[in-house]
Design a protein around this nucleic acid. Structure first.
Length: 462
RNA sequence: GUCCCCAUCGUCUAGAGGCCUAGGACACCUCCCUUUCACGGAGGCGACCGGGGUUCGAAUCCCCGUGGGGACGCCA
C-alpha cells in the first residue's frame, strides 16, 4: 500500500509549534515510506479563516522545509462534492434533516448538564422505524445530521495510543451540514480523507474524540478506514497549555529570534519521538529513522534551553555563507552596516562557537562595525588608574608591530613582563576598551581583526 | 458532570517481564583546558505517582486510587 498522509490546518492563525510538529511527523512518515504528503487547508469556517493565515502557514512550512507533494487543497473549493455526498446520504437514510433551533439545542444541553449527563442531541428528528416525526416548522431552516449507530462500539488501534474503544451510546447525531447548507468540519474531513486516499491520519490528540464519529461516517459511506495516529500536545515551558494568550507563537517567530530551521526541526523531532539515545540528526536522517512506534503518548513540555543547545550546534555547523547572510540581515536590524573590513567571515569564525542564537551572534560582533558601548561596571573594574600607563606603553609598541595576532600577543607579553603583571591584568582593560565588555575571544585575535588604526583609536578614546 | 487519554530525573526521553545497582540528552554543580567569557573534555547531583494483584522475578502486565490533560459547538 502506498502511504498517503496529510496535514490539514485550519487557516485561523499562524503555524505554531504544535501544528509544525504534526506537519513534520506527517511529512516524515510519508518520506520514510516513499509516500505522498498532502497539504489541505480546512477553511470551512468562513468567519475565522483568512488568506493571511493561509499564507502564514505556507510560510512556516517553507521555512521549515516541509514540502508537500499534493495540494494545497482548499475545502471551500470542494463544496459541490461535499453536497453531493450529503445528498446521497440523505437518500440512503444515513443522514436526516433536523429542525431544532439553536435556542432549543442550547436549552437541551443546559438541561442535560444540570442532570450530570453528557450533553448530546436527543434524536428528536431522527427517523426511526415506527416513529412518527413532528411536522417540520416552516420558519426554521433545517440542519442535516448524521445518523450515528445506536449500539455497539467503535474501536481502532491508534498507532500512538493503542487500542481505543468508544460506545456508540456516547456519540450523538452530529451536524454535517449547517442551516445554510455548508458542510461542517467532521464531515469534510471524512470525505477528504476518503477521496484523497489518506492511509494514515496523523494529527493532534484533541481529535481523538472526533475519530469514532468519523469512522462511523466512513463506514456509512462504505469507505476504507485509514489508520490513525494521535499526537499528544506540546505544553509551554511552564507546563501550561499553549494558547494564543499564553506562549503560543508562530514558528516564524523562531526565525525572528535567531533560530535556524534545522535546529527547530531537530528539536521538534525529539519532542515526543525518539531513536534510542540519538539527539542530533539531519532532516534526511530523521526521515530514515522516523516511525510511529517510538512516539510518546504523553504530553511534552517545551524546553528553550535544549532548543538553544541544538541551535548552538547548528550555528557551529552552518556554512560561512549562511552565517554571513544572516549576520548582514540581523546587524542591519541593529542599524549596523557591515563594512569590508574587518572581514565578516573571519569575525564570524571567531565568534560562532559562542552563540546560542543568530541574534546573539549578531549582537556580539556588532562592535567590529561600530564603536562599542562601554559597560560601566566592566570599566570601573578593569580600567583602573594604575593600568593607564601600561596601556599607553602598549599603544606605543603596537604602533610598530607587525599586525598579526602572534606579534600582538608578543607585544602584550612585553609590557606584562616589563611591569611584572599577569597577562589578564592587561588583557581585561583592553577587552573593555575595544569591545565594551569583559568577555571576548583571545584579545590578540580580536585586535588583529579590528585593525591597528581602530585599536589605537579606541584605546585613545577610552 | 459524562466519556476518552496520559503518568520514568527539574525538562526531553531510553525501556516490549530478568540485560536496571534504571541508560542518554538539556539544565545545574565540581574539576580540567585557559588570556576573561564561551567552546571542548572528565566527573557529580537527580526519576520508575500511590496501593493492591499476576509471576520464581514487574519501571514494564492487570485492577483500584490519585494527579494531570482532552472532548462534550450550526469551531476546526
Amino acid at each position: 500500500m502506498i502511504v498517503r498522509t496529510r496535514f490539514a490546518p485550519s487557516p485561523t492563525g499562524f503555524l505554531h509549534i504544535g501544528g509544525a510538529r504534526t506537519a513534520l511527523f506527517s511529512w516524515a512518515f510519508a518520506k520514510k515510506h516513499g509516500g505522498t504528503f498532502i497539504l489541505r487547508i480546512e477553511d470551512t469556517d468562513v468567519a475565522r479563516s483568512t488568506p493571511e493565515a493561509v499564507q502564514a502557514i505556507l510560510d512556516g512550512m517553507q521555512w521549515l522545509g516541509l514540502d508537500y507533494d499534493e495540494g494545497p487543497f482548499y475545502q471551500m473549493q470542494r463544496m459541490d462534492r461535499y453536497k453531493e455526498v450529503i445528498r446521497k446520504m440523505l437518500q440512503e437514510g444515513s443522514a436526516y434533516y433536523c429542525y431544532c433551533s439553536k435556542e432549543e439545542l442550547d436549552a437541551l444541553r443546559e438541561n442535560q448538564m444540570q442532570q450530570g449527563l453528557k450533553p448530546r442531541y436527543d434524536g428528536r428528528w431522527r427517523p426511526e422505524e415506527g416513529k412518527t416525526l413532528p411536522e417540520p416548522p416552516q420558519d426554521i431552516p433545517p440542519v442535516i445530521r448524521f445518523k450515528n449507530p445506536k449500539d455497539g462500539h467503535v474501536s481502532w488501534n491508534d498507532l500512538v495510543k493503542g487500542e481505543i474503544s468508544i460506545a456508540n451510546q456516547e456519540l450523538d447525531d452530529l451536524i454535517i451540514a449547517r442551516a445554510d447548507g455548508t458542510p461542517t468540519y467532521n464531515f469534510c474531513v471524512v470525505v477528504d480523507d476518503w477521496e484523497m486516499g489518506i492511509t494514515q491520519v496523523i494529527r493532534g490528540d484533541d481529535h481523538v474524540n472526533n475519530t469514532p464519529r468519523q469512522i462511523n461516517m466512513l463506514k456509512a459511506l462504505g469507505a476504507t478506514i485509514p489508520q490513525y495516529a494521535h499526537l499528544s500536545m506540546i505544553l509551554g515551558g511552564d507546563g501550561q497549555k499553549l494558547s494564543k494568550r499564553h506562549g503560543a507563537v508562530s514558528v516564524m517567530q523562531y526565525d525572528e529570534d535567531g533560530y535556524l530551521p534545522e535546529a527547530v526541526l531537530n528539536y521538534l523531532a525529539r519532542l515526543g519521538w525518539s531513536h534510542g539515545d540519538d539527539e542530533i540528526f539531519s532532516k534526511q536522517q530523521f526521515c530514515e529513522w522516523f516511525d510511529l512506534d517510538h512516539i510518546t503518548p504523553s504530553a511534552a513540555q517545551f524546553n528553550t534551553d535544549k532548543l538553544n543547545w541544538l541551535n548552538a550546534h547548528y550555528i557551529k555547523q552552518a556554512s560561512p555563507e549562511t552565517l554571513a547572510r544572516e549576520m548582514k540581515k540581523r546587524l542591519a536590524k541593529l542599524h549596523v552596516a557591515v563594512s569590508a573590513q574587518p572581514d565578516l567571515f573571519a569575525v564570524i569564525d571567531l565568534y560562532k562557537e559562542r552563540a546560542n542564537t543568530l541574534n546573539e551572534l549578531a549582537a556580539s560582533i556588532a562592535y567590529f562595525y561600530q564603536k562599542p558601548v562601554i559597560d560601566q561596571a566592566a570599566a570601573e573594574k578593569h580600567l583602573t588608574a594604575d593600568i593607564k600607563p601600561v596601556i599607553a606603553k602598549l599603544a606605543d609598541l603596537l604602533g610598530a608591530v607587525d599586525w598579526q595576532a602572534e606579534a600582538i600577543h608578543h607585544a602584550i607579553n612585553e609590557v606584562v613582563t616589563q611591569y611584572q603583571l599577569k597577562f589578564p591584568k592587561v588583557a581585561m582593560p583592553l577587552r573593555v576598551m575595544l569591545t565594551g565588555i569583559a568577555q571576548s575571544p583571545s584579545i590578540d585575535q580580536v585586535m588583529a581583526l579590528l585593525g591597528r588604526d581602530e585599536v589605537l583609536t579606541r584605546i585613545n578614546q577610552a
